[in-house]
Simulated scan of single mutants.
Amino acid sequence: MKNNNSIIHTAKKTILTESNAIANLAKLIDANFENAVKFILASKGRVIITGIGKSANIATKIVATFNSTGTPAIFMHAADAIHGDLGNVQEDDVVICISKSGNTPEIKVLIPLIRNYGNKIIAITGNIDSFLGKNADFTLNTFVEKEACPNNLAPTSSTTAQLVMGDALAMCLLELNNFSSKDFAKYHPGGALGKRLYLRVSDLVKENQIPKVAENDTIAKVIVEISEKRLGVTAVLKEDTIVGIITDGDIRRMLSKSTDIQSFTAKDIMGKNPKTIDKDAMAIEALETLESNSITQILVVDKAHKYVGVIHLHDLIKEGIF
């Protein structure tokens, strides 16, 4: 059994071998890459991405990246393609074929069939002199000197290179399509990532009660309001205008100095000039404000700066924003 030093050495060697392969990949970007990007951009169809073995696994990830960044794509397994799935390829589609060797039997059968349909082929291959490399319209070179596998057999550096080449294509297309964070949000509505991009303060505040007291209200009323509304805070208003804020911490600090709550009113213990946020702001902005000011609640206002309610750090945690 290997000792810990040997395990760490192998891990570092793997990472460095693959990182060197990726660094070298930048030197292989040429006019073929540029022309391939331009062709996909001008195409009226989809991008069909195919491969076999580990290359097929990489193809599925590249498909996912394309779809999430505004370039419609579908996966087609090279083996299944020659047994019926070739019907996925439509007239205006562009086919990206991924293969390290470029000479597998399935690829040699598939490529002529695609060319007969008149579709353009983009090759991602580690062997530009292969059958695939020579029969593609655009050939993207993903040559690696060696795999991270000590036997130089298991696809490691080569599949990483394929993946990075796919990412490079996707990012170029994203920029050329002016694909913005708003567009990204449309394709990622679920989960924390999507919520960071589309969830607004108004979506959160509407779920909460609206704690408020007048500046001359008694401390007893303040305590009841904070307790009933369960947000740990209340706004202090004067003629519907925010003049202060009281937190449960303010109550505790007051009681530590005096238990004679009858002699105090809301304006005596409120914090003045409280932090506020517009209801139309993004929820992520609310989180940034809370964090930068080391607070857990913030008052929400509308465009006229009228009080709308409160959002709590717990609201953001519940939605997965935090």
Rank of each mutant, 00 (worst) to 15 (best):
214 A>P: 01
181 S>A: 14
202 S>N: 07
189 P>N: 09
197 L>C: 05
197 L>V: 00
203 D>T: 01
184 F>C: 06
210 I>R: 12
189 P>M: 07
212 K>W: 04
192 A>M: 03
214 A>S: 11
205 V>C: 15
207 E>I: 03
215 E>F: 15
194 G>V: 02
218 T>I: 11
198 Y>R: 03
188 H>Q: 10
193 L>E: 06
181 S>L: 12
213 V>H: 02
190 G>P: 02
199 L>V: 05
213 V>M: 04
197 L>I: 00
191 G>D: 06
182 K>E: 15
186 K>F: 11
217 D>S: 11
192 A>W: 01
202 S>M: 01
217 D>Q: 13
192 A>Q: 02
195 K>L: 09
199 L>W: 00
222 V>G: 06
206 K>D: 06
214 A>M: 12
181 S>F: 09
221 K>F: 13
187 Y>L: 12
187 Y>N: 10
215 E>K: 14
219 I>G: 01
186 K>M: 13
200 R>D: 00
184 F>H: 07
203 D>K: 00
215 E>D: 05
222 V>W: 05
197 L>A: 07
186 K>L: 14
203 D>V: 01
208 N>K: 07
210 I>Y: 07
199 L>I: 07
203 D>W: 00
215 E>R: 11
182 K>R: 10
191 G>L: 01
197 L>D: 03
183 D>A: 03
192 A>T: 15
185 A>H: 09
181 S>I: 15
213 V>A: 00
212 K>Q: 12
220 A>F: 10
183 D>T: 05
207 E>N: 10
215 E>L: 15
211 P>E: 10
194 G>Y: 01
191 G>T: 04
186 K>D: 08
211 P>K: 05
188 H>I: 04
206 K>G: 02
203 D>S: 07
182 K>S: 15
219 I>F: 14
208 N>H: 08
200 R>F: 01
186 K>V: 03
200 R>C: 04
222 V>K: 07
204 L>V: 00
197 L>K: 01
221 K>I: 08
181 S>H: 08
204 L>T: 01
192 A>G: 08
195 K>R: 13
192 A>Y: 01
218 T>M: 14
206 K>E: 05
217 D>I: 14
190 G>E: 03
206 K>Q: 08
216 N>T: 15
183 D>G: 11
186 K>H: 10
208 N>I: 06
185 A>V: 02
191 G>P: 06
208 N>L: 04
199 L>Q: 06
222 V>R: 08
205 V>H: 09
190 G>H: 03
185 A>T: 01
196 R>E: 03
222 V>T: 12
205 V>D: 14
200 R>M: 10
182 K>P: 08
203 D>A: 04
186 K>Y: 07
209 Q>I: 07
196 R>D: 07
203 D>L: 00
190 G>D: 04
217 D>A: 12
193 L>A: 04
214 A>V: 14
188 H>E: 06
186 K>S: 11
210 I>T: 14
222 V>N: 05
186 K>G: 09
207 E>L: 08
202 S>F: 01
